[in-house]
Every structure is written in C-alpha cells, then in structure tokens.
C-alpha cells in the first residue's frame, strides 16, 4: 500500500516545496486567501449589522453555518480546487501526459497540485468556527459531538466531489467551463447561509441536486435542536455522509464517461 502511494506523495511533496520556496510570494498569497475569507464573512457581518435574525437563525447560529460550510469548501478547494484547471490542461494537451503514466488519471489530476495558499481561508473559517461554537447554546450529547466532528469532513468530501463532477463535465464543455461554477462556487456560496431564506425550488436544488445544505445548515439545525423550514425532517441533518457518497458516485461515473469521451487535442 505504502509503495503504491509513493508516487502521489512525491508529486504532492514537490508541489508543496515549489509553492513555499518563494517565501514572500507565498506569504502574499496566504494573506490574499485570508482576505478572501474575511470578504466572504463581511457579507454575513453586514447583514447582521442590520437585522437580528436571518432565516430563523441568529448571528451566532448563522456564523456557525457559515464557518462549517467554509471550512469544508476551503479544504476541498485546497485539495482538489485545481481540478477547475482541467479546461486548460485539455486545451494545452497536458492531460495526454497523465494518460501515458501507469496511474489513474483522476488520482494524478488531484495530486498534480495542492494550493497551500488556500490555508489562509481555511484558517479564517476555523477561527470563526472556534468563536461561533461557544456562542451557541448547544446541549451537548455524544451524538452531537460526533456530528460536529464529522461535519467538516463530510462538507469537504461533498465539495471535493462537486469539483470532480464539474471537472468531468469539462470534457464536453471546454470553453464553457464557467457553467459549472454556478454549482461548485454557487453551491459553496449558498451553503454559507441558512437554506430557509431560499424559495422551495432553490432549497430543493441546493439540498438534493447540489447537496450544499448538507454541508452546514442541516447539521446545525440538529446541533441547535431547531425545527427548520416545513418539510425538513430532523434526521436529514445526519445524512451528510450519504450525500457525500452520492456526490462521489456521480463524480466517478461522470469522470469515467468524460475520460472515455476525450479524444486528445491533436498535435
């Protein structure tokens, strides 16, 4: 097993070294990423500077939703966000090099880069999570402790799966790659807010098609013992792992189909 994973370790290690070699560039990139995290939170802050409750959640609860969704998204962005570059690889023919190596192409794509600068946004989200968690009045049980520990992981898995789904579609879209941003980045944006502010069709879209609500809002309803909007059974908050599995199933099937569709860029 260890021997089989060695090529990936070497690949990721080389990417990490290359990014941290130029110290000043790396620090400025990190700060940029921190700033993006703060910008995202600024929106929540400004809304709650005007109102006390949004979608039946107070500031502390909304911050918790925001933090959980953002920890998940920024981790996924760090690990597989570069899958977004697939159209560039397709146009330039870089993907052909992946096809020549005796390793799975998807695994190579994922390990072909790791964007350490995005640790900045992860850090911002973790800090907000650490501040927001004690501000909420949670009756802790063993199950809830497990849920809060599990949620960032499942959120990361869901968003990472969405990135792979988006990458799979690129085999057909190439130039229209921005279509998928509506679901990856759009899903991330929607997941940072209480889903109860959305109309029913949008809520269904961001729950069952793009499972953004599973990454933060639904688990937070369970943590806080809140009812949520009508038609939202409580047990849904425990289903995030199922959502992650479903996304990855679609992602892997889609990726397989996309790769078979790929015929090279020619020379």
């Amino acid at each position: 097993m260890g021997e089989r994973l060695r090529p990936y370790r070497v690949l990721v290690g080389s990417r990490m070294r290359s990014q941290t070699t130029y110290r000043r560039s790396f620090v400025s990139d990190l700060l940029g990423s921190v700033a993006i995290g703060l910008m995202e939170f600024a929106e929540v802050y400004v809304v709650f500077a005007n109102v006390d409750v949004l979608g039946d959640l107070d500031f502390a609860a909304a911050a918790l939703v925001f933090a959980l969704a953002n920890v998940g998204f920024s981790m996924a962005d760090l690990l597989v966000g570069h899958a977004d570059n697939l159209p560039v690889y397709l146009r330039e023919g870089t993907l052909d090099a992946f096809l020549l190596r005796p390793l799975p192409v998807l695994a190579q794509l994922i390990t072909s880069d790791v964007s350490l600068r995005r640790l900045g946004r992860v850090a911002v989200s973790v800090v907000i999570l650490a501040v927001a968690l004690p501000l909420n009045d949670i009756e802790w049980t063993a199950a809830k402790v497990a849920l809060i520990a599990l949620t960032p992981l499942t959120a990361t898995a869901v968003f990472a799966g969405l990135f792979v789904c988006a990458a799979a579609v690129q085999f057909w879209l190439v130039e229209g790659s921005e279509f998928t941003s509506a679901f990856t980045y759009g899903g991330a944006y929607a997941s940072g807010y209480p889903a109860s502010i959305f109309s029913l069709p949008m809520r269904l879209l961001f729950t069952f098609v793009v499972p953004a609500a599973f990454t933060a809002y639904l688990p937070v309803l369970v943590l806080l013992d809140l009812p949520g909007p009508p038609g939202t059974p409580h047990w849904l908050g425990w289903c995030a792992p199922l959502a992650a599995v479903a996304v990855w199933a679609v992602a892997l099937l889609g990726w397989r189909a996309g790769l078979r569709h790929y015929t090279g860029t020619g020379s």
Binding site: L54, G176, E178, A182, F183, G186, Y193, S199, M202
Partner: peptide, 19 residues
C-alpha cells in the same frame, strides 16, 4: 464562454436576491 458566464451570473443572482 459568454453563455456560460451569463448562466452562472443568473444562479448567483438567485442566491443574492434571496439573501
């Protein structure tokens, strides 16, 4: 690319308008 961008702008518009 323009069509794709317009679609994405619209989906984000939905989310923003909801907020």
């Amino acid at each position: 690319a323009t069509a794709a961008g317009a679609f994405t702008n619209t989906v984000f518009g939905l989310i923003k308008a909801s907020i």
